[in-house]
Amino acid sequence: MKIISNLLEGIEGIRIFYIFGLLLFFSLFIIILIRTLRRSNKEMDEIKKSILTDDDSNETAVS
């Protein structure tokens, strides 16, 4: 843990965590957003409908 302590103490300006977090989030977000939007709608439809095809797919049983 001392190694981490030394490393962190050496970082100038704690605000770097703040900026780092935002940058990391936005870069990951943009990548995931683009890649997700490019996925085929057909494939998405198949997946989301798959859960309705099992034996429980009837409407709620009510008296």
Binding site: T36, L37, M44, K48
Partner: peptide, 21 residues
């Protein structure tokens, strides 16, 4: 919710994006 309504979830793409975010 999809099971009780017997309808698929509105957007699977949205579920991926909002999961990771």
């Amino acid at each position: 919710l999809p099971k009780a309504a017997n309808r698929p979830i509105y957007s699977y793409k949205l579920s991926i994006i909002h999961f990771w975010s």
